[in-house]
């Protein structure tokens, strides 16, 4: 018996050894750094516990950064979710399958046009010396600057919506295919009109996918850095810019406030991804794939 148990133990060891590279990797490059980040956000150089870093995270400068980031993510995710769902529905309903799949391919490929190239693409079109800007000025004598500026919050919205839309289209099309034809027929047989079908069947079924989509889009925008960095530099404070500045030491202060900002951002993103995950699980259960 003892021998058997030893044998089993040896077997278990042999089995678990293969997982060591992964476990060590995750500890070293994911959990330990994040754990130390959280610890540092609560401690002074001397090692004493403190909430001081969180107090400084709520100074007006950083509150502004958080507010800008949340506003930008919230607005572009909202536009992205509803417009994306609408466009996705039109693509889903497109009668010609070949065009339909071309449109889906277009959405898929354009998700790669992000970050610096995307920001610069919009500068070419609508920058202060942009093609459309100059064209409007020369042809119609319409000076869009300084009322409009691509280097502003509005410009960021226009640019962020660019990468939100195709993502939502890709997310929502499977949800539309999950709406089964027999449900619609069942509803019609029970006397439901189109409105009633959507209100009582269609929208409740799509809801988890819509919420999941919104959350993913929010997280997508909230964590973005390269696009805004290229477009507005450090002029328009977003929280990711401020954390970036804390790394390069452009802001010299007691270490720790950057970590506090990072922990708060981590919580926001974590909540979004958790809700996203619950939404997709629910959607998958309902649509049965």
């Amino acid at each position: 018996m003892a021998k058997y148990r030893r044998e089993q133990k040896k077997n278990f060891l042999k089995k678990i050894v293969g997982l060591f590279p992964f476990i060590i990797f995750c500890l070293a490059f994911e959990f330990v750094p994040i754990f130390i980040l959280v610890r540092d956000s609560f401690s002074l150089k001397s090692g004493d516990l403190t909430l001081q870093h969180y107090q400084s995270a709520f100074e007006p400068t950083y509150l502004k950064g958080f507010w800008n980031s949340i506003k930008l993510s919230g607005v572009t995710a909202l536009i992205g979710t509803f417009l994306g769902a609408g466009i996705g529905y039109q693509i889903f309903k497109w009668p010609n399958k070949k065009i339909q799949s071309t449109l889906i391919t277009l959405s898929d490929v354009t998700t790669n046009f992000a970050g610096a190239p995307l920001a610069f693409g919009f500068i070419i079109i609508l920058g202060s010396a942009g093609v459309v800007t100059k064209f409007l000025l020369n042809t119609f004598h319409w000076k869009i600057y300084p009322d409009f500026s691509i280097y502003s919050f509005t410009g960021l919205i226009l640019t962020y919506v660019y990468f939100q839309l195709p993502l939502m289209v890709l997310l929502i099309i499977p949800a539309f295919s999950g709406l089964r034809q027999d449900w619609r027929e069942a509803a019609q047989n029970l006397g439901a009109n189109k409105m009633e079908y959507w209100r009582n069947v269609g929208i409740p079924i799509l809801m988890p996918s819509m919420i999941a989509g919104y959350m993913l889009l929010f997280a997508n925008a909230f964590g973005a850095y390269a696009t805004a960095f290229t477009l507005t530099g450090l002029r328009l404070p977003l929280i990711t810019m401020q954390i970036g500045s804390a790394i390069s030491g452009e802001v010299m202060r007691e270490q720790g406030h950057g970590q506090a900002l990072a922990v708060i951002s981590l919580l926001i993103m974590g909540a979004c991804i958790a809700i996203y995950q619950m939404g997709t699980n629910k959607a998958r259960k309902w649509s049965g794939h």
Binding site: E30, I36, L37, A219, A262, S265, C272
Partner: peptide
């Protein structure tokens, strides 16, 4: 679950944690 966690870490936060730990 372990594999989805990186989705929730903003890249700037990942960078900050590495720079401060290593």
């Amino acid at each position: 679950l372990l594999m989805i966690i990186p989705f929730a870490i903003p890249t700037v936060v990942l960078a900050l944690s590495y720079v401060r730990v290593y």
